[in-house]
Design a protein around this nucleic acid. Structure first.
Lengths: 205, 205
DNA sequence: TAATGTATAATTGTATACAAATAAATTTCA
DNA sequence: TGAAATTTATTTGTATACAATTATACATTA
């Protein structure tokens, strides 16, 4: 059941369904060889992701997932992640920050896309999870799932790998100096840059 | 089905269930005289509200809804509503703003709690909906549902009615002057004040 | 007795059957 | 013909039955 969820999730993100097309329970049941009951549960999950809209007695239709959507998600992400930074920056351990910085420097010029995508996730996840705010963490994770494809694709270009990691280092430095205002300003720019890179990847779908 | 959702929703918000208590499908079915199928759907909704946690094969348990939760929700709300303001402030119509201001002034000294609660909702909803950002709107509406009880209770005290409405007027004025920075600063303080008032109402449960 | 294993009960997960609502096709009548 | 009414088909909503999993109670053994 978790499986058919992620299959549908990825298909919608990838734009494999025409916008506003109706997802009929029976059709999906047949397609995945399961009954309608778990299909309905999956459709409800997708509705909460904002990927489909369910109307009473009319079923689920696929919502458009366009550049506007990605733009909006990045703006929301920025607001929430800046809130995270405000909360976590003053309490992060110097040791962990230095460790992260060392890792960033070590891998600055590496080619492997996965290394950079993982490092990116590691820093952001650390800042977010350190807040200990369960709702905030859950909301950001949900947003990340929606844009994860675009995030990793962004690291395909060599210069974005390097510039993103440099921005990470600057952010870590600002936090280490306990300069939260500067850290937030750098993070704001960093997420704006990420947004532009993500939008640049859109044509690939 | 929508009915049993709101009943359970309100019971959890009101703290009528001990934290971590398990909500068994069969028990709820019997209680509401419906089958387990719609009960399961409702529990999934409540999970998305962050009010229960569902674990595979273990069912749903009620999550604690404490002062910490309310504090966190207000902080998230503040971040997202400031984003809304940034987007909508430059494009709001002078006419509608003046109309709202007039309404605020007219009702400034009214006793009726409902009048003030409605005015509060009217302004905030206006600023939020004018952004046209569907996800942002949906997220804020979900947060509002969680704190609505505390919002209205806050207007029971006479001085909060008046001060909140005065803050609304100041915010409208700043927007009218197209001074978004000032509007955001005033909104930040306004939501912080609302948070304190909401937290002050907590003991009533 | 305490720990482990086994049987039983309770609970969740899924499939299927039927009811209710909606959409599509057909008929009726001006 | 064409609009309204009626019937039929399709689809979603709910109830129920059964399967799979987890929790509990009991028995066994060291």
């Amino acid at each position: 059941m978790i499986d058919i969820y992620s299959v549908l999730f990825n298909k919608i993100i990838a734009g494999e369904y025409p916008a506003n097309i109706r997802l009929k329970e029976e059709v999906l049941s047949a397609e995945f060889n399961i009954s309608r009951t778990p299909v309905r549960a999956v459709l409800q999950q997708l509705e909460q992701d904002g990927l489909v809209q369910i109307s009473p007695n009319k079923g689920a239709k696929v919502l458009p997932f366009s550049a506007d959507e990605i733009e909006e998600i990045y703006e929301i992400r920025k607001s929430l992640e800046l809130l995270c930074l405000e909360i976590s920056a003053p309490i992060l351990s110097m040791q962990k920050l230095l460790e992260l910085k060392r890792e960033m420097i070590t891998n600055l010029n590496k080619e492997d896309v996965k290394i950079h995508a993982d490092l990116d996730a590691k820093l952001h996840d650390y800042l977010i999870n350190s807040t200990g705010k369960k709702r905030l963490i859950q909301m950001l994770n949900q947003l990340f799932r929606l844009i994860q494809k675009f995030r990793s694709l962004g690291f395909m270009q060599k210069d974005t790998k390097e510039s993103a990691t440099k921005e990470h280092i600057e952010i870590i430095d600002a936090i280490s100096m306990r300069n939260t205002v500067l850290a937030k300003e750098l993070m704001r720019k960093h997420i704006d840059n990420s947004k532009m890179i993500a939008l640049g990847q859109l044509y690939k779908f």
